[in-house]
């Protein structure tokens, strides 16, 4: 079944996550990452959101996907660890 969840996470800047996921397979169906952070080049965020689709919702898979997607870019205000926490925070009751 498709479920939706949201989380607001304070890293060095604010990260807001809107997540759709399949609870049977525990896989990300869609994700929107917004916030007052910086990322160079800016297009890297679209690529990151696309890469996360289909990723299993566990710390290792999410962090690895983020690190791979952001290899050629430079974030300010968050890192792969805090963004992983922000995404996983969607599932906390």
């Amino acid at each position: 079944m498709l479920k939706t969840a949201h989380n607001v996470y304070k890293a060095k800047k604010l990260i807001k996550i809107s997540l759709e996921y399949m609870d049977d397979g525990n896989v990300i169906k869609s994700i929107r990452i917004t916030g007052d952070f910086f990322l160079y080049p800016e297009e890297a965020l679209d690529q990151l959101e696309s890469s996360l689709i289909g990723t299993e919702i566990d710390r290792h898979s999410i962090k690895e996907t983020i690190e791979n997607a952001l290899q050629e870019s430079e974030p300010f205000g968050f890192d792969s660890e805090s963004l992983t926490d922000a995404i996983l925070g969607c599932l906390k009751p």
Binding site: K16, T34, L39
Partner: peptide, 9 residues
């Protein structure tokens, strides 16, 4: 608003 922000939010 910043490039990565949502107008709605």
């Amino acid at each position: 608003i910043g490039y990565f922000q949502s107008m709605e939010e």
